[in-house]
Design a protein around this nucleic acid. Structure first.
Lengths: 338, 338
DNA sequence: TTGTACGCGTTATCAA
DNA sequence: TTGATAACGCGTACAA
């Protein structure tokens, strides 16, 4: 196993010099530095994480988590994953602080970022897709903060890592599943959250793309509910009255509970087949009642866990992630394999 | 953060004494040892893995992997997960050696275990469910070897950890999925691997249990193929000739490719709906052709990765797993969300 | 520009 | 039965 000490001996310099050369701290002769780096490369030197961790202990790096989790039970599992990871890494001096918000007000999120900017070494954020947030993220990256976007990505930033699901494929999967369950033809209602959320649009695109193949499928209407259950309930109720021919509903975002309550007012024989996303408690309840036939799962626990893990690897072990994103698979869940 | 040093100061002894007391190395006064342990417990002392790793580096512990992977592509992903984990942990001095076999001959596996017993510190095994193997595993546990069973468990052993899927639930899921896709009634052929493999039996039990709810479902026949594609082909061909009423096939084990080749001899309109397990390349091919409608996935990569991870945690960090098993969820895959 | 020395937490060895 | 000391690999403050 090759260590700094060995390289130092081989190059006839001190270990301090090797450290300065390999970590680009300056104050070292250019030629000897070049030589040291060459030797290290040839020997395939990899810093030992244990040593790094031990030395980094006094730093007590801080991860700030900015997430719109209030009133959105989807994030419960994400946060649980983060917590479990943080507990494992606490021993390396890693600290984690949560800054939760309610809703998707970009000004509020921006204010939060401004407030915590100086106190954190890494940022894990569920970003609102607005230019002001993108600009702030780039600013923080430039200031040396390691930035991970989680569950939703944001356009035009130099964030270091994204961990989340494949939304476009999620839409494709929802449509393919609908075809598998309904057969050749269906009158479909598509339910969206907000068009401002990048992922929701992508799911719709995926769904539509896949639908081109199924000539017997027809989208009766596409309704938006702003992830609000009351609005979702009212909208779906009206839609079902206007279009009694609807026999399938694909919910591509939140508002699942509201939609289901509207559907439950129909007699069981008249109820359309319902597909949803995620496995929040109310959705599981509706699956138990048989109102929702299947749901698509995007590994929320692992999303949270991996986000913290990547920040940890960077802060404590100095390792940049080898990929730029970690995209979870979409999994189909019936009540039986929840 | 509480360290040995702090405990030593608090107890007015040296770190060496604390080490001996906490790690039960003897050569320490019984009362002071008791006191030290009490203080450590009250302060919630947790050994620092980084420190342990650094100090344990000269040990170079060895994991031996005994697995019937030859000619079974399911294990490719399991082995990939093991390899990735091993690469990450190599820096801690962890070594891994693979001993692969073909088929399920318990005598051969036993001979292998006898051969490597003295050279390994941990064993990761895909065990054959026979008393002689169980006895040997217990013997190795007693000799201080950390034993993880992977993908299949074994009765009557004191193995430390099992990582694999929930077979009973897999059978339930397969039946529930069939119901979702076929509706109220179906004439089902069930395909088994070998009755000697614990998991296959459990899947069958789960399938049957779930079927009690669906009165329109009828099992035409249950055939066994010993995980052999040629045998599977022949058996299925004959079965389809004898029972043209079959409109659904649930394959609960291997032999998927053989079964599908037999089905492909029917004209597309006459082909039954097919469900399988796992996502080996030939199964994916058959999904692309539309012969297999859906398959159930049991996270093979994570199985391999977690098995090595648990062995690593024990060998390098001295941490016993907090659970006794890690059971993967069964995931439903269409071609679209593979 | 370079080298030395210490600390991080744990384990092992040797001396008392 | 104990304590002191060195070692593991890395980062860093300080001396040369």
């Amino acid at each position: 196993m090759v260590t700094m000490k060995k390289i130092a001996e081989l190059c006839g310099v001190s270990r301090g010099t090797v450290d300065r050369a390999l970590n680009g701290r300056g104050r070292v002769n250019v030629e000897t530095a070049e030589n040291i780096r060459e030797v290290a490369r040839q020997l395939g030197y990899e810093p030992n994480p244990a040593g790094k961790a031990l030395a980094a202990r006094k730093k007590r790096p801080v991860i700030g988590v900015v997430i719109s989790s209030e009133g959105n039970t989807f994030f419960d599992e994400v946060l649980r994953g983060m917590n479990d990871a943080a507990r494992d890494y606490a021993i390396y001096g890693l600290q984690i602080e949560y800054f939760t918000m309610k809703g998707y007000d970009s000004k509020q999120q921006l204010a939060l970022l401004n407030q915590i900017e100086g106190d954190i070494n890494a940022l894990i954020i569920n970003p609102i897709n607005e230019p002001c947030i993108a600009a702030k993220i780039n600013e923080m990256v430039d200031a040396g903060i390691f930035v991970v976007t989680v569950n939703n990505d944001i356009d035009g930033t130099r964030r270091h890592y994204y961990v989340g699901s494949d939304y476009y494929n999620g839409g494709i999967t929802s449509c393919a599943l609908l075809e598998a369950l309904m057969g050749e033809s269906a009158e479909v209602a598509v339910v969206l959250g907000s068009r401002n959320i990048l992922g929701h649009r992508q799911r719709l695109d995926g769904f539509r793309h896949r639908m081109e193949r199924v000539k017997g499928f027809h989208i009766v209407d596409t309704v938006e509910n702003n992830d609000d259950d009351i609005l979702a309930y009212e909208t779906m109720k009206r839609l079902l009255e206007t279009h009694p021919e609807i026999n399938a509903v694909s919910i591509l975002a939140a508002g699942v509970y509201g939609v289901c309550r509207a559907i439950m007012q129909l007699t069981p024989e008249k109820r359309p087949l319902v597909l949803a996303f995620d496995t929040v408690p109310t959705t599981i309840e509706m699956m138990k009642f048989g109102v929702i036939k299947a749901t698509i799962y995007q590994h929320p626990y692992r999303q949270g866990h991996n986000a913290v893990n990547k920040a940890f690897e960077y802060l404590v072990n100095g390792r940049m992630p080898d990929k730029e994103a970690d995209i979870m698979k979409n999994e189909i869940k019936l009540f039986e394999n929840l």
